[in-house]
Simulated scan of single mutants.
Amino acid sequence: MPVVLIVVITVVDQVTPADIQLGPLLVIAPALTASFAGPWTTGLIGALAVATQAYISWYFGVLFTRNVLVQILALAVLSVLVVLFCVVRERRLRQLAQVRMVAEAAQHVVLWPLPERIGPLTTACLYLAAESEAQIGGDLYAAAATDRGVRVMIGDVRGKGLSAVQEAAVLIGAFREAAHHHITLPALAHALERSVARNLPALGTEADLGERFATVMLVEIPDEEPVTRVLSCGHPPPILLSPRTAVTIPVHPAPPLGIHELVPADYTVDVFSFEPGDTLLLYTDGVIEARDTGGAFYPLDERTAQWAGSSPDQLVHHIHRDLLDHVTGRLDDDAALIALYRPPGPHRVHGYQLGHHRDQAAGSHSA
């Protein structure tokens, strides 16, 4: 475009009357080049513009007049300034790219991607951060294959931004270690609560300690039993998808982590059937609270019913596209999804008694 512009200005200037001078318009060429090219290309276009200005002046026989020399000098100075701008911009872009690379590496350290297979399960996950250029925020998830089966945590820290990422990192780190050392889910929840109580005060001022909390869902899926054990700390209930249906699992939520000094912990473990061929969908409130332009919430339970027979990857892909269509491409809050699929296979035991188990004893604090 800059070269075409220079050619057009040169041709038009030669066919117009001598009292009409279009040469000063050549400054547009290096300025336009700077918007998409580097300093070397911009400098080359600037030099071409100066040479063209000199050629036009020579064509009309006014090259050595004082007015034309000033115009040529001004064009040369402006071209040099534009090149210097390109140099500074390129340096800052390199610095920004390096910082972004470090930030992405740090985010991957905090939020490990789930493996495609963990224990007997096939998994798929999705994370959509509300902050632009961010890959994680206040939502979190983690999974661990333990002696008691696969344990999964999904949660949502109050707020977003850097402080929310710090709080999410505390919970993820605590879960990765505690998931292997506590026999029951209530004992694991108590361990996470103690970690939150120890670490969150260091991440904020004393004034906002009462406002720092996290909703968490803990899930345990034994390798051989066709059940799932769920413990909710104020987190939205999961959805169980069989090949033809989708049902929201009713849970008995305890208070979120971080406020148990105000409300004593009273954990309930809900046990439900999780047969081969079923998919368990975990999500954060950023999904179900996403609004369209009319203010309507995203109907996750209704939408997932039509994809009940899909694989975990397909299910997450469908929800991803449908959710972004619902909000016209922009989320106001972080959103996370995990799909856990138990494939058909041998050595499955049936006939387990399902129900709810409430843990209120002081002994639940130990492994």
Rank of each mutant, 00 (worst) to 15 (best):
V349F: 02
Q21I: 15
Q314Y: 11
T65D: 15
I9A: 01
H260D: 14
I259Q: 15
L354G: 00
L63V: 15
S273F: 00
I239Q: 05
L81K: 09
L241E: 05
P24L: 03
H318V: 05
L48P: 03
I259R: 07
V102R: 10
L5T: 10
P226T: 14
P299W: 03
V87T: 05
L140S: 04
L73D: 03
P238G: 09
V251R: 03
E275T: 12
Q95V: 06
V11R: 00
L63G: 11
V157P: 06
V349N: 10
A106C: 12
P120T: 00
G286N: 04
G149M: 11
L185H: 04
A105E: 09
T245G: 08
P17D: 09
T268Y: 04
P120I: 03
V80G: 10
P237K: 02
A144Y: 06
F64I: 11
T65L: 07
L84A: 15
G155M: 09
V327E: 07
V271N: 04
D270T: 04
S79G: 09
E289G: 01
S57I: 10
R66N: 11
Y283R: 10
T33R: 14
L281D: 04
H347I: 14
L192P: 06
I72E: 02
T228C: 11
G161P: 14
A305D: 07
L93R: 13
H182N: 08
T65N: 14
S195H: 10
S310H: 07
S35W: 01
S232G: 11
H252D: 15
L262P: 05
E261R: 12
Q314F: 11
W58R: 11
L32I: 10
L78V: 08
H180T: 13
L203F: 03
P264F: 14
H181Q: 10
C125V: 08
Q21S: 12
H356F: 13
D208Q: 05
T245A: 14
F60N: 05
L262M: 14
L121M: 12
L241I: 01
G138E: 09
L192G: 14
A179M: 02
V219Q: 07
Y55D: 08
S242E: 11
R148M: 01
D13V: 04
V99P: 06
L281T: 06
R117F: 12
E193A: 04
G38T: 04
E224V: 05
A191K: 02
S132V: 07
V82E: 04
L209S: 11
A296E: 13
I45R: 15
I259A: 10
H235L: 10
T279D: 04
L171T: 09
I249A: 02
L26R: 08
P299I: 02
